[in-house]
């Protein structure tokens, strides 16, 4: 693949991610502000965005720190919350299987809800996606740069406006996810998957450490598979 094709995929990845990245801006700023108001130092706050680079985990760690939770409990919670990334990575396995490890490392490090949403949207319905890693890295690097910058802005704002974390700015992320999920609800199985996820989440929200989220995701996927005609067809073909 030519350098030009690579850079155009890289740019397209960044561009396709821009609505979600814009939505992540308030999120990053709130993180920075929240972290320093709960007593994390400015450098540690920035380091968390640079090395951990996982919004949900960062928020949970800081929230638990504020309530003086023990380190092992924080770490266990972070790990459980991150298990959804394992599902994300697993669903992209066919796309990375021919890539050298030097690409898989940065792609794994930069795998977020946003980049996964955009990349899986890009892959959906296509048989082959050459140079997908450049698209992925474009999305991821744009997200990383903005996240780090917003953390710094948040640290500064947190010193000026202490109650900024109560403004509810995280709503931007939610409407961004709506914009990814809803246009991809095409089959009956897709709708059933979304409806099950919603219903099950409402039944399990009081479970500790986001275990309800994981349980609901698995349940929703199982329901979708049971209703999915394409799988039934391929299973029948295998029997013949």
């Amino acid at each position: 693949m030519s350098t030009k094709a690579k850079s155009s995929l890289f740019l397209q990845g960044a561009l396709d991610s821009s609505p979600l990245i814009l939505a992540a801006i308030p999120f990053g700023m709130i993180f920075g502000a929240l972290a320093i108001t709960t007593g994390l130092s400015s450098w540690a706050t920035l380091a968390m965005s640079l090395f951990v680079f996982a919004g949900a985990s960062q928020f949970i760690a800081v929230t638990l720190l504020a309530s003086a939770t023990a380190l092992p409990v924080i770490l266990l919670t972070v790990f459980v919350v991150n298990l959804r990334h394992m599902l994300y990575a697993a669903s992209l396995m066919p796309q990375v299987e021919n890539l050298p490890q030097k690409f898989r490392f940065p792609m794994a490090f930069w795998l977020t809800d946003e980049t996964f949403a955009v990349v899986s949207n890009h892959v959906a319905g296509k048989k082959d996606t050459p140079g997908l890693h450049w698209y992925f890295l474009g999305s991821a690097l744009a997200m990383y740069t903005v996240w780090a910058t917003c953390t710094v802005i948040g640290i500064i704002m947190g010193q000026q406006i202490p109650d900024i974390s109560s403004w509810g700015l995280d709503v931007a992320m939610l409407v961004g996810f709506i914009g990814i999920v809803v246009p991809n609800l095409k089959l009956r199985a897709d709708w059933a998957c979304a409806a099950t996820a919603m219903f099950s989440t409402l039944m399990t929200y009081h479970w500790p450490n986001q275990t309800g989220l994981l349980f609901s995701s698995f349940l929703a996927i199982s329901v979708a598979i049971l209703l999915d005609r394409r799988v039934k067809v391929s299973v029948e073909q295998n029997h013949e």
Binding site: A197, T201, S217, I221
Partner: peptide, 28 residues
């Protein structure tokens, strides 16, 4: 990836991950 072969039904199941997980996050 590439070292283990994912069964087709699991591969199909994984295509529902974005809808399942993101809907759950939105609901929560």
């Amino acid at each position: 990836a590439g070292k283990v072969k994912i069964p087709p039904i699991l591969e199909r199941a994984l295509t529902f991950v974005p809808i399942a997980v993101l809907t759950s996050i939105i609901t929560q």
